[in-house]
Design a binder for these strands. Sequence first.
DNA 1: TTGCGTGCAAAGGTTTTGCATGGCA
DNA 2: TGCCATGCAAAACCTTTGCACGCAA
Lengths: 144, 144
Amino acid sequence: MPMKTARSANYNTLQGRLILDYLVSLGDRHVTVNQIVQHFRKQNIPIGQTTIYRHLEKLYSSGTIRRYTLSEESACYQYASNGKACQEHFHLKCEQCGELIHLECDLLDEIQKHVYKNHSFRINALKTVFYGTCARCLKDGDTP
Amino acid sequence: MPMKTARSANYNTLQGRLILDYLVSLGDRHVTVNQIVQHFRKQNIPIGQTTIYRHLEKLYSSGTIRRYTLSEESACYQYASNGKACQEHFHLKCEQCGELIHLECDLLDEIQKHVYKNHSFRINALKTVFYGTCARCLKDGDTP
DNA sequence: TTGCGTGCAAAGGTTTTGCATGGCA
DNA sequence: TGCCATGCAAAACCTTTGCACGCAA
């Protein structure tokens, strides 16, 4: 009998390939579900939004893409290009300009250890994003 | 003539008082709009959710309460009692059971300072959530 | 009396779910 | 052939808006 784990089979389908290819092609830009729907509609390859939601969920769970909740709008998704390396550091996302900063810093390593030791919580660096304001936007908005 | 600014008159109404009193009574805990609705419904003092939304908006604009957009759920509100409370700590969200943990820890304060000093990034602790696995779920899922 | 406050209903938007059909393996 | 994937429709949510009426000042 086939191992009936709680995981999906991950069939190789046209829609699945198209969605991932599109995200990869965007490089470090991020898109909303609606933008993805529009993209394929323009190409006359309409893909149901339900399908898109379900693929994004899978890709997000597996760490292939990142998910952001910028402002109060809908969620944004972005390909986690350098997959491996990014598991070992955190990400800073500027709420103003949307820039994503990869934070390579020993302090962050300490955080993970500290929170695990003292608070019994295992941080998932893949999904954790620090929101805030980047240096450029801090300068621009000095006197609002 | 009365200054006709874009601001409202802020009448002193029963509903307005009840809502603020409730938030104050919660101390540093935060609640969603729905929780507020339920609270008053239980007391047989039902207040329309529209009214609650509008009061929260005013209180938020004036800085009387804080607003969180934790995880992907609905917004949370909390009385800005002493200026301290939740803006000076982070939140941990368990990906397994969904529990939200308030992390009171000096180390986190250091993070903010460090990231600002060394990486010129101002972290928004209100928005930032650490995702991971809580103590209970770590135990439960030891051997999956 | 004036005009904001209230709350019902309805609309708007995002995301999820039910279900029958289609397609991968 | 057995499931999973797909996608339409509908539901489930959260939040906002329109409107008539009530109430504070």
